Amino acid sequence: MSQINDFDPNSVGVKGTLFGLPYTTENAQIVVIPIPWDVTVSYNAGAAQGPKAILEASTQIDYEVPGIPNAWKLGVAMAEIPEVWESLGRSLRVKSEIYIEWLEAGSDEALKDEMDERLAQINAECTQLMRYVEQETEYWRQQGKMTILLGGDHSTPLGHMLACAKEGEFGILQIDAHADLRKAYEGFDYSHASIMFNALQSSKINKLVQVGVRDYCEEEKNYIDASDKRVVTFFDQDIKEAQYKGKTWSEQCTEIIKELPDKVYISFDIDGLDPKLCPNTGTPVPGGLELDQVNYLIKEVVKSGRKIVGADLTEVSPGIDEWDANVGARALYRLTSLIGVSQNML
């Protein structure tokens, strides 16, 4: 406690801690669960290094948040990065790349048995990871902590979502370039492109509101259209065209928020942003949102009286410098602050 009382938010942060803050998982109110995993990524790998890169970049953050006095006092800490899963993920990534190359080359029938065996192993380990995440989430939440999942690719939050769903119904606000509604994309049961399809198998997740989607297939569009508004998508093109015609972002946020239930889980895939902010993410797509737009939307969700019950930040993939990680760290800091307000922690 003395370390917290003696902490100077205007000076140098604590080395090795999230945001350089003087908190541990024992005295923090929010625990960030890092999952270094990108086994099923279909384009560029690297998101497995996201948690470590964000942790290292986060000490450069200044703590003032407009409208949230003393935001740093909320108390946020990151759990240990699980080295066992990181190591397993690296080895499985090599196997998945061979499998994906086989698919893209036309699925040579002579190699089918070998590739089916490879796929079965990957699916089995991804299932175990999902269960690990679910158990880890339950552990921290049973300690009275709010949790945020930090990926890794966008497959990683499923166990986190399912653990949160055990506490009651909620809707997901998804910030993303992709709809992620494919069933077992490329044969991977827990593909990063299947996260929302998988999440919606839970009856406790009663709504999905997607914002910024601009890369999707016919199967996903049909899923949205047939969902009877359980899935509502604000496509990036529609957002931009409305702005060109004079509709403000504030007005559009009001429309988005009207679709959300009282309890909201935020799933923030960094590729929902303009790729100038995240050029090294696994599947970058032209277009997208500014970080300030996302922060404003989440702030308006909180101001509406809705309660944020959990969140994730995924697909931050560091390149040769810290740019992506710096953006990711700032997105995470603002997200934690707004969750703190939503949960009356500040």
Rank of each mutant, 00 (worst) to 15 (best):
A124G: 12
E220I: 03
E259L: 01
Q3T: 06
E315I: 03
V209A: 00
G288H: 00
R182L: 12
D116F: 14
L346S: 09
P275G: 05
K207H: 02
Q49N: 13
E251C: 09
E322C: 10
Q243P: 03
G159K: 03
A184Y: 11
I122M: 02
G46S: 05
I256F: 03
M146A: 15
N280Q: 11
L335F: 08
D189M: 11
P275K: 05
T127G: 14
L18W: 03
E167Q: 15
K258D: 11
L291T: 04
L346M: 10
I148P: 03
S202P: 09
G67T: 02
W102E: 00
I224Y: 04
W72F: 11
K204S: 15
A242N: 11
A77P: 01
I100N: 05
P69Q: 12
G287C: 08
T248K: 08
V65E: 08
V327T: 14
Y296L: 13
K204Q: 14
D274Y: 05
I33C: 04
D228F: 13
I35E: 04
I54S: 08
M196G: 07
P284V: 12
V316N: 12
I224W: 02
K52P: 06
L162I: 12
Y244A: 11
Y23C: 01
L313I: 14
I35D: 02
T336D: 11
K73M: 14
N222P: 01
I224K: 03
D312E: 12
N5D: 08
T17A: 01
D116T: 10
A124W: 09
G287E: 05
R306A: 01
G187W: 07
Q252E: 10
D153L: 09
L55K: 03
D108H: 03
V309G: 01
V213Q: 06
G282T: 01
V41S: 08
E134D: 14
G50S: 01
T147S: 12
I298H: 11
G106P: 02
T248G: 08
L162C: 04
S227Y: 04
T233F: 04
N123E: 06
L277F: 15
A177F: 10
G319E: 05
G159Q: 05
R131W: 15
S191D: 09
R330T: 14
D236C: 09
V209T: 03
V41F: 06
E109H: 07
P51F: 09
K145G: 01
V294Q: 02
E56P: 02
C217G: 06
I30D: 02
E86D: 12
A79V: 08
Q60V: 10
P261V: 00
G89P: 00
W85Y: 14
G20N: 03
S317M: 12
N27K: 02
S202F: 08
N198P: 05
Y216V: 11
N123Y: 07
D225G: 06
F234I: 00
G106Y: 02
K166F: 05
V285H: 07
N326I: 13
M78Q: 09
E290C: 08
V94G: 00
L200S: 01
Y139V: 07
G106F: 08
G75C: 09
C164R: 02
A79N: 13
N123W: 05
K258Q: 13
V309S: 00
L332I: 06
A120F: 12
Q293M: 07
L162K: 09
G310H: 09
Y23S: 01
I205M: 00
G20S: 00
V309N: 05
L92P: 07
L338V: 10
N27R: 00
A179F: 09
T156Y: 05
N10G: 03
G75S: 10
P275W: 07
A47I: 06
